[in-house]
Amino acid sequence: FSITQFVRNLGLEHLMDIFEREQITLRVLVEMGHKELKEIGINAYGHREKLIKGVERLI
């Protein structure tokens, strides 16, 4: 299971460039909250919320 699959499953594949540029893996994403996601350029609250909720389902 990769970050690419995870992001695609959430319908947020347009954010993949950010994850690749910042070298974010699923392991790193698990540790990130709204503040960190915003810092790397994910400005939409809804997108950040989707990512965080998606990660919570993985754990």
Score class of each variant (00 low, 15 high):
I42A: 00
E31F: 13
R27N: 13
M16H: 06
L58K: 03
L58E: 06
L26T: 04
N43W: 11
K53F: 06
K53L: 10
E22F: 07
T4R: 15
K35D: 09
A44S: 15
I40D: 01
E49I: 13
E31D: 13
A44L: 13
T4F: 14
I3C: 05
V30H: 09
L15Y: 10
L12G: 01
D17R: 10
G54I: 05
F1H: 11
M32C: 03
E20W: 10
L10F: 02
L12N: 01
A44C: 15
E31M: 13
M16I: 15
E13F: 10
G41M: 04
G33F: 03
N9C: 14
I24V: 10
K35H: 09
I3Q: 01
I3V: 10
E49Q: 13
M32R: 01
F19R: 00
R27L: 14
S2H: 08
H34K: 02
I24P: 02
I42S: 02
E13R: 07
L51W: 02
G46C: 15
E56W: 07
I3A: 05
I59G: 08
K38N: 08
V55L: 11
F19K: 00
G46V: 14
R27D: 07
G54L: 06
V55F: 10
A44I: 13
V28I: 14
V28D: 15
L15V: 06
G46N: 13
H14C: 12
K50Y: 05
N43F: 10
E22Q: 13
V55D: 00
H34Y: 04
I52L: 14
D17K: 12
K53D: 07
I40A: 06
R48F: 05
F19E: 00
I42Q: 03
K50S: 09
V55T: 06
R21G: 05
M32W: 06
K35I: 06
K38F: 09
L29K: 02
H47P: 08
L58V: 07
H14L: 11
S2T: 15
L15R: 02
R48L: 07
Q5I: 10
K35F: 07
K50T: 13
G33Q: 05
F6G: 02
H14D: 12
K38E: 14
Y45D: 05
I18Y: 05
A44P: 07
I3Y: 03
E31N: 15
R8Y: 14
L26H: 04
R8E: 10
H34C: 03
I59S: 09
K38A: 10
I40M: 07
E20I: 14
E22W: 04
L29N: 00
I24M: 07
I52V: 06
G33A: 04
F1C: 14
I24L: 08
Q23S: 12
Y45M: 08
E22K: 12
V7M: 13
Q23C: 09
Y45N: 06
N9D: 15
G41V: 03
E20V: 13
E36P: 03
L37K: 01
E39F: 08
G54E: 09
V7K: 01
G54Q: 05
L29S: 02
D17A: 13
Q5D: 14
E20T: 11
H34I: 02
L37Q: 05
L15N: 00
L12T: 00
G46T: 14
L10G: 02
L29D: 01
N43P: 07
E13Q: 10
T4C: 11
M32L: 08
L37P: 00
G46Q: 15
E31S: 15
I42M: 05
Q5L: 11
D17H: 15
G46K: 15
K35M: 08
H14Y: 13
Y45T: 07
G11R: 07
G41T: 03
N9I: 11
L10V: 07
Q5N: 10
M32H: 02
V7S: 03
A44N: 15
V7F: 06
I52F: 02
R57P: 04
E39V: 07
L10I: 09
G54A: 15
E22V: 03
G11W: 02
I52D: 00
H47N: 13
I52E: 00
L12M: 07
T4I: 12
L26P: 04
R21Y: 05
F1R: 05
N43M: 14
L58R: 01
V30I: 14
L10T: 03
N43A: 13
F6C: 04
V7A: 06
I3L: 14
K35V: 08
R27W: 11
N43L: 15
V7Y: 03
T25I: 04
F6Q: 00
M32Q: 01
R48P: 02
L58Y: 14
E39L: 10
L58W: 13
Q5K: 10
D17S: 12
K50R: 12
I3G: 02
E31Y: 14
K50F: 06
V55H: 03
R57L: 12
M32G: 01
T25S: 11
V28L: 13
L12W: 01
H14V: 12
T25V: 05
H34W: 05
N43V: 14
E39W: 06
H34L: 04
V55W: 06
R21A: 09
Q5H: 12
K38V: 07
K53Q: 11
N43K: 14
T25K: 05
F1W: 12
H14A: 09
V28H: 14
Y45W: 13
L12V: 04
I18K: 05
K38R: 09
I3P: 02
L26F: 12
L15P: 00
Q23N: 14
T4V: 14
E49S: 09
I18Q: 04
Q5P: 04
S2D: 14
I52Q: 02
E56N: 10
T25L: 03
E56R: 14
I42D: 01
E36K: 06
L26K: 02
I59V: 12
H47Y: 07
I59E: 07
N9L: 13
K50H: 07
E56K: 15
L51M: 05
I59Y: 12
V28M: 15
E39M: 10
E13I: 10
D17T: 10
K35A: 10
L51G: 01
E20M: 11
L51C: 05
R48A: 05
I18L: 09
T25C: 06
K38M: 12
I52H: 00
I40E: 00
Q5E: 15
V30P: 06
I59W: 08
T4N: 12
V28K: 15
L10A: 04
M32V: 02
